[in-house]
Design a binder for these strands. Structure first.
Length: 385
DNA sequence: GCAAATGTCGCCGTTTGA
DNA sequence: CGGATCAAACGGCGACAT
């Protein structure tokens, strides 16, 4: 099996960059994008716009993106908006507009597809591209793809090209923004091994901390460990995977189509709510979540057979419960009843900050389920009767 | 008195079917 | 009739990702 040629493309500060397309006067300024009703910009009679500042924000939201100017001030995605406001009170704050981001997402993906059709979707702002059978030099292709994306959207991206997804994902991040990084197997020791283990997609906070406790900080240090040692520390599956990843080996194919496994809605309340004191309010929120999930299912044409709930207590502990339905559904009232049953199985002795509803075990709504085998009577070999 | 929303996957203990 | 067994399914949950 000859080496593949896989690209990972990552849009630069995607949400923020889309916002800059419509508010060009913000270019060069620190700008952060935050959830909910972060103040909509207001247009003055003379046509100039007034923007909300981070310091004006009150609430419990987090930032989803920030421009590179804002990042220079210590702001990053996932950071509490209130906390970011302390670091950069004068930075501009904009609300998210997912419809706009989805629009530009489609545009950039279509532009890439015109050059290389084997694309794996990885969320709204990144993709893997299988370039193995595409004509042309890697650097040339990277330039062509970036030019096509810019022509279609006015947005820049960063690209890594290597023999597999693992390495390409690392590389697309090495020269950001607007960068290209091409790397062959022979360059792994020099370019990959010096990097921190956390650069590997799949090593998160927990594994990173455990590795650090073992004195393993760089990918090279991980690569130097015996496979058996890692298996002993992390278990058969994950230990072996860590070993392979550190060597830069990864055979996962580029997957060009997939079906959703679950559809969910969740919400964090303005303030923590008490299951008894705020019963009515919680009930209304719960019902609304079920209606929204049902709407999502219907719009996307799915029915689900498993209903699940998720709740987060005021101390941030999270619990889930789910239950199988007798038949798949996309009906809000049916979902609401099942979710209510799940809720009864969970201790409701303290305040809640979040509630969520999920449907899984999905199937397409259109295709009339072929009847389940229903002849339990016929096969009870343990019953001599 | 704080840390969003949505989704996937793997592990593990328990239940169930045979 | 009861016990033992094994695999699949289920349910809870943590880790990780964007």
């Amino acid at each position: 099996m000859p080496d593949r040629r896989i690209a990972h493309l990552d849009m630069d500060a995607f949400y923020a960059s889309v916002e800059l397309l419509r508010y060009p006067e913000l270019r060069g300024l620190p700008v952060a994008i935050g959830g909910r009703r972060a103040g909509q910009p207001e247009t003055l009679p003379d046509g100039t716009r007034r923007f909300a500042r981070l310091k004006d924000y009150v609430g419990r939201g987090v930032l989803t993106t920030a421009t590179y100017e804002a990042r220079a001030l210590g702001i990053h995605s996932g950071m509490g908006t209130m906390k970011a406001a302390q670091l950069a009170p004068e930075a501009i704050l904009l609300p998210v507009d997912f419809d706009a981001y989805r629009h530009y997402s489609r545009l950039f993906k279509a532009a890439v597809a015109a050059i290389a059709p084997r694309i794996e979707d990885r969320g709204i702002d990144e993709i893997y591209i299988d370039l193995t059978d595409v004509e042309g030099d890697s650097l040339d292709l990277a330039r062509r793809i970036k030019a096509a994306v810019f022509a279609a959207t006015g947005l820049t991206c960063s690209i890594g090209i290597t023999p597999n997804k693992l390495l390409s994902k690392i590389c697309s991040d090495l020269r950001k923004p607007d960068g290209i990084t091409i790397l062959g197997r022979d360059e792994i020791p020099a370019r990959i091994w010096p990097l921190p283990v956390r650069k590997i997609n799949g090593i998160g906070p927990k594994a990173g901390e455990k590795l650090a406790a073992l004195g393993i900080h760089t990918i090279g240090e991980l690569a130097a460990r015996e496979r058996d040692f890692l298996v002993a520390q992390f278990g058969r599956g994950y230990g072996a995977w860590l070993h392979d990843a550190a060597q830069g080996s990864d055979e996962r194919p580029v997957v060009t189509s997939s079906e959703p496994k679950s559809i969910s809605r969740e919400t964090t309340f303005e303030r923590d709510l008490h299951p008894r004191q705020d019963r009515a309010e919680l009930g209304a929120i719960f019902t609304a979540l079920c209606e929204r999930v049902a709407g999502d299912l219907q719009r996307k044409g799915y029915v689900g057979r498993k209903v699940g709930i998720k709740l987060r207590y005021d101390d941030f502990r999270t619990v889930t419960r789910d239950a199988r339905l007798p038949a798949p559904t996309d009906d809000a009232a049916t979902i609401r009843r099942a979710a209510g049953e799940c809720l009864k199985r969970v201790p409701l002795d303290r305040r809640l900050r979040l509630l969520g509803v999920r449907l899984s075990a999905l199937s397409r709504a259109g295709a009339r389920e072929e009847r389940q085998e229903v002849s339990p009577q016929a096969e009870l070999p343990l019953d001599p009767a």
